[in-house]
Simulated scan of single mutants.
Amino acid sequence: MTALGFLYPGHSAEDDYQRIEQLLGSDIRLDLAHTDIGEELETGSADRLAAGVEELLLNGPEAVVWASTSGSFLYGWEGAHEQIRALARAAGTPASSTSFGFVHAVRELGVRKVAIGATYPADVAELFAEFLRAAGIEVTGVHSGGVVTAAGEWGEGELMSLAQEADEADAEALLLPDTALHTASHIETLEKHLTKPVLTANQVSVWEALRLTTRKVNAPSLGTLFTREPVVQV
């Protein structure tokens, strides 16, 4: 059994992790600890994350992921690195965040140009684009849904509209970065409609945790990221 731990802010789309665990169909357990949501950078503060880690450690995780995209990229490229270093020290395991999960997933797919469909306000969405650019990823466009707190109530219709509005013809993949969105049951549909890989926050968070433990799982229902062979970087 591979146990993976996730620090999830508040309560919104946490049932995505139950769905993903079912879709993985193997000896993998996904454990969540909920952290408090504060103002902007407070959400991802070392104290809040450390408090959540204490709960996760009871389940013996092999890796821990801070499952908040904005709660990591708002710290900037260097600040987000320090955040996960502190998390790894607190957990005593390999650690990462959803933001870095997106970077590693894009590299895994071997794509260079991506479009972003974010529920966030425009200024916050642009900070995610800047984070990706710092990793050497070209962002062809950023679409903002302008949502602050209601993304967890979105269904397939709203999700599909966001994806369609955000997609760019020259983008090789579409990124949907909000962990408050329910996406686990819709990735296959999104990819078939857009005819390109779609990376979503909770999907990427789980993939990143598996990457930290060197586990590779083939799960077609979770999209291209969970079916394609790793790209050899040269």
Rank of each mutant, 00 (worst) to 15 (best):
I20A: 04
G136K: 06
V148C: 01
A169N: 10
H34Q: 07
G136I: 14
M160W: 10
S97H: 05
S45L: 01
I84K: 02
T224N: 06
N202A: 10
L132P: 02
A219E: 08
L74K: 01
F6G: 00
N218F: 15
A46T: 15
Q203M: 10
S45C: 11
R89C: 01
L74V: 01
I137S: 02
L87S: 05
D16W: 07
V217F: 14
H143A: 04
V234K: 06
E82F: 09
G136S: 11
V103Y: 10
M1N: 11
F100S: 00
K192D: 14
A86T: 14
I84F: 03
A95F: 03
A134T: 04
Y8H: 02
Q18G: 12
Y17A: 00
L132H: 03
L127T: 07
W207C: 00
E108V: 06
G155M: 11
A219W: 07
N218I: 15
E55K: 13
A86K: 14
K196A: 06
D170C: 09
Y8D: 00
P177K: 05
H34W: 09
H193F: 10
T224W: 11
A95W: 06
E62I: 02
E138K: 13
G25M: 08
V232H: 15
E188R: 14
A33L: 03
L199F: 10
E158R: 12
R29A: 08
T2F: 12
T35C: 12
D27W: 06
M160Q: 09
D31T: 13
L199C: 08
P94V: 07
A209E: 09
L194K: 09
P9I: 02
Q18L: 15
K113A: 11
W66T: 00
H104S: 11
A118Y: 00
T213K: 08
R211N: 12
G223C: 08
F102W: 06
K196T: 07
T189R: 13
T224V: 13
L58N: 02
I28V: 15
R48A: 13
L109Q: 09
